[in-house]
């Protein structure tokens, strides 16, 4: 894998295409949302407002289906994960642009943020003492396995998204080099589907991890089994 070249430098920081692509996504999402929500109407919503409300309500409903008690608290983080992952995955379809999620630095950053958010929301939900206590439950012998599981799923989260998006771009590039001009179109359609699926998987896993951290204490006191972070 080639190393991304630095486009320009801001002081000591070298700005790569990944960062520029991320800024572009931030600019598009920020301006688009700002313009779309300038004139929200309670009584007569327009087509764009209806679409925005549908997206937000879909994300809110998905969070509520996993964690009915705190959908509003998780909406900004998980919703942003989904939206950013969708735009970042699809950005590679535009010729000359690079998908930020095709860079391990981005997926690792997102995975680390998910890792931290699991503990952040877990401690906020049940207190740090009770939260940390679940690592030694039901037996302290399981502590190493819990810690190993935390790191391994974070690593898997980063590698999975990076590997899928990188491989899609690589495959599209190889098909474009080997075949004719219109041959990569099916591959690009597969790219779109795979990008959406990977974005959904990444966000849903992050949601399940966070819900598991928030419900780890309460679940020991209730008969309902906690949601598990199965790796697809």
């Amino acid at each position: 894998m080639e190393e991304l070249e630095v486009l320009f430098r801001l002081g000591p920081f070298g700005i790569t295409r990944t960062v520029v692509g991320t800024w572009g996504i931030m600019l598009v999402l920020g301006l688009g949302c700002r313009l779309a929500t300038l004139r929200l109407s309670v009584e007569r919503p327009g087509l764009l407002q209806t679409a925005l409300e549908g997206i937000v309500q879909t994300i809110h409903g998905a969070i509520a289906s996993v964690l009915p008690e705190h959908p509003d608290r998780l909406l900004p983080f998980v919703g942003t994960l989904w939206l950013f992952a969708v735009f970042a995955n699809l950005l590679g379809l535009i010729p000359g642009l690079h998908a930020p999620t095709g860079d391990l630095s981005t997926t690792a950053a997102l995975a680390v943020l998910v890792f931290l958010s699991v503990h952040w929301f877990g401690i906020r939900a049940s207190g740090w003492r009770r939260y940390l206590h679940h690592y030694v439950a039901p037996s302290p012998i399981l502590l190493p396995f819990h810690v190993l599981g935390e790191f391994s799923r974070t690593l898997a989260l980063a590698i999975r998204l990076f590997g899928n998006i990188m491989s899609l771009e690589m495959a599209a590039l190889l098909v474009l080099l080997v075949a004719g001009f219109l041959v990569p179109v099916p591959i690009l359609m597969l790219h779109v589907i795979e990008a959406l699926v990977q974005a959904f998987i990444f966000g849903m896993l992050a949601l399940i991890y966070i819900a598991g951290g928030m419900q780890s204490v309460a679940d020991r006191e209730s008969p309902t089994p906690p949601p598990t972070g199965n790796t697809p």
Binding site: T18, V19, M26, D103, L104, S105, T106, A109
Partner: peptide
């Protein structure tokens, strides 16, 4: 599969800003 730590840090900041 190298991680550029500057990009890593900037992506964290970018995501939180987003």
């Amino acid at each position: 599969m190298n991680i550029d730590w500057t990009t890593f840090a900037l992506e964290i900041v970018n995501f939180l800003a987003l």
